[in-house]
Computed example of a mutant assay.
Amino acid sequence: MLEIQQLHKVFPNGVVALDGVDLFVPRGEILGVIGRSGTGKSTLIRCINRLEEPTSGSILLDGRDVTRMRGGELRATRRRLGMIFQQFNLLTSRTAAENVALPLEVAGAGRAERRRRALELLALVGLEDRAGSYPSQLSGGQKQRVGIARALAAEPSVLLSDEATSALDSETTDSVLDLLRRINAELGVTVLLITHELDVVRRVCDSVALLDAGRVVESGPLGEVVARTGSALATGLLPSLGRVEVGESEIALDVVLLDDDADERLAAALTDGARVEARATERIGDRRVTRALVVTDDAADAPRLADELRVRGARAEVAR
């Protein structure tokens, strides 16, 4: 479990990078932290592993405050915080296996143990046949897989991923995200994932937090966030309905329903003169999400229809 309480980071030049961040990451989940460049995302992740010193606040890892740790206690805790970097940060003079084994070498593990663990992890990330390859001989996606394997070398309980897919093409990004989700499921590793892409959040995360000007302005499980009225995150996370033409005299409602009985609840709310003009369904986080454009030719009945949909657990807003 990772919990961040009122975390502040003010740089010597007076720039406030983090301004009272509160976050909670349950054990075994993937939390995506999203925001524009300059909002404090990378500073947040570097404060968690103490590559940056927080100005104030607490970072609790299984109830113990990382900000108060020094010396050997801090070094031991850092081994529980695996780090995946945007630009891979592999040593060019070392093979893939030697890069993966580096954290174990620093920790004092023997040569045989380092080799065994490195080969095991390279197999986990699908690179068992590239153990002897140098970074210059690997593609971008393969380098990132080596970086992920290295981050797992010391058997961390938390993985910190700093824009790990932003330097990759879309196909490679998908394969790396699938790998992170598999590692999360198979090893039970908690993941805090920094990104600027909502598609990454939609694809792999259980929950999301929006960071703006060093503050968390919205957060929650994906299934709950997409159902919130006025959510800044929901628009980007919801399934797209494409371009839909609606008659001049008609009223359109943008409707969102969660879970497997959404179609039945939607059909039960419709009245004469109302129809579903477009519909899309996909799984977001741990919930099945249905988005529909409901159109009625009776403008006076639109508020009642919206209320009926809300009674049935939908988010319903007038689209036009």
Rank of each mutant, 00 (worst) to 15 (best):
Q5E: 15
Q5L: 15
V16Q: 11
D19Y: 09
V21R: 01
F24N: 13
S37C: 13
I45V: 14
P54E: 02
L60Y: 03
G63A: 11
D65L: 06
R79E: 03
R94M: 12
V100A: 06
V106F: 05
A107L: 03
A112C: 08
A118V: 01
A118T: 05
L119Q: 14
E128I: 12
E128C: 08
D129Y: 14
D129S: 15
S133G: 11
Y134A: 07
G140I: 12
G141V: 02
G141S: 10
G141K: 09
Q142D: 10
V146H: 02
I148Q: 09
E155A: 15
P156W: 13
S161T: 13
L168F: 03
T172E: 08
V176T: 11
L177H: 07
R182V: 09
T190D: 09
L192G: 09
L211A: 00
S219H: 14
A227R: 05
S231I: 08
T235D: 12
P239D: 02
L241E: 03
G247W: 05
E248A: 15
V255Q: 02
A280G: 07
R288I: 05
V289L: 02
V295W: 00
V295G: 04
D297H: 13
D298N: 12
L305A: 01
A306P: 03
A306S: 13
D307N: 14
R310Y: 07
V311M: 13
G313I: 03
A314H: 00
